[in-house]
Design a protein around this nucleic acid. Structure first.
Lengths: 238, 238
DNA sequence: AAGTGGTCTAGACCACCGC
DNA sequence: CGGTGGTCTAGACCACTTG
């Protein structure tokens, strides 16, 4: 870990422990850079991290302050969402049931989302993920077979993302998501065990590699009473 | 606008216009810093912006590349969500109907979300926003009366956010959102004109000032067929 | 080994706030 | 006016990829 990350870690701890109380002024950049024996640019870079996390804010001419809601935001674990369920809920028992698993040529929609030609086959899979034995989410997933190679039922029963990262060495770049509400389909009623008129929360996403190539298109349908989606936005423009 | 922002703007344009084609290597930092006659640090800062936007990615030792999906992401206007509906959909006709408007003492839930004491009154308002005359979203909003002062029905009929920013001079810091699906309530059926068993997409949010003080707690209920919520995630850790 | 991006420095100037 | 944070420089070293 480089200097500015180490320093950010120390300051973050001071905020969490109340050494720098909520809503207070913290020492200026010159003082801090002397304390940590670094240049002011490096010191600023450390503070930039904390500003991105929403822990501090700065006013030219005035100083650097601890955010009023600094402690609240701590509660949200910074799980990158494309780490997959297994990593997002590490303390829970997650099981998977394979409902469909095959390789086929892509539909129009899938071709477009995954930037494929019609002759490039994709894995199509449907999994029911259960949390502590209870139905949690029904995933409809498409992955191009030239990027995601060697998929087996064994892998599907565990964490696909662990396989992609550790065994295939893929580097994730980001994801584009669309969230909407929908009526429960016959499929949802069957597998999620929800009532006929229950709403469903659907997360439709395309996940990309670092070079921007899409490797997953999926629609995850959640029971409306089991899951909500949280987002923390920080205003960078000011 | 400072140097690194100007340079970022130029490079962004080159990517959009295909001067730097998708998936290609762009000139290295030393070459670019000579072209723009700036130091390498400044050049890197310009590229940092484009990396945050998901237009480029960099590999130590290899070079800087244009993302495969660079052009796709351009389609999403970078509307900060707390700019309000009026600014998000500037080309559409948006009208508001005031269903409820009063000032009262906060409930337990509102006190907690807005960090208030029980003796600090809040504005409570319910607005139906219509898009091109059609019901679009039903907003239940609470705002502390000591921050958001001088609210009138006239303001509610237009853009509250414009009033807060321009007239009160408030500086927004960010927002915390929770998105879930729900069953339509009697209220939703009445005002959104949806069917009894239609699902509803609810966005529950707390919006903060720059100093971390919350100034809005709201629940916005959308017709499931009219609105979805989109998110672009960029992986910063790599 | 050469070339790339990432970090770090010491110092400078500027814009802004509050006294 | 002094002190704050934001920007920018010219140069250095390092980590990494590629030929």
């Amino acid at each position: 870990m480089v200097k500015y990350q180490q320093i950010a870690k120390i300051i973050r701890k001071r905020i969490q422990e109340g050494v720098y109380p909520v809503d207070s002024l913290i020492p200026d950049q010159v003082t801090l850079s002397k304390e940590f024996d670094v240049s002011r640019m490096t010191m600023k870079k450390a503070l930039d991290i904390l500003a991105m996390e929403g822990l501090i804010y700065r006013q030219r001419g005035a100083g650097t302050f601890v955010m009023k809601n600094a402690l609240i935001n701590q509660l949200d674990t910074k799980a990158e969402e494309y780490d997959g369920l297994t990593k997002q809920l590490p303390d829970k028992e997650i099981t998977s049931k394979i409902i469909y698993f095959d390789i086929e040529f892509p539909s129009e929609k899938v071709m477009e989302q995954l930037m494929l030609k019609e002759n490039q086959p994709v894995y199509k899979l449907i999994r029911l993920r259960c949390l502590e034995g209870q139905p949690y989410v029904l995933e409809h997933t498409y992955m191009p077979s030239d990027i995601v190679t060697g998929l087996t039922e064994d892998i599907l029963l565990g964490s696909i993302y662990r396989y992609l990262k550790e065994d295939l060495g893929l580097v994730f770049g980001g994801a584009f998501r669309k969230i909407h509400a929908d009526k429960a389909s016959e499929y949802d009623i069957d597998y999620l065990e929800c009532a006929p008129h229950d709403p469903v929360l659907e997360v439709e996403q395309v996940v990309y590699l670092q070079n921007g190539k899409p490797f997953e298109y999926s629609r995850s349908r959640h029971r409306y009473d089991k899951r909500s989606y949280t987002i923390l936005d920080i205003n960078k423009s000011s």
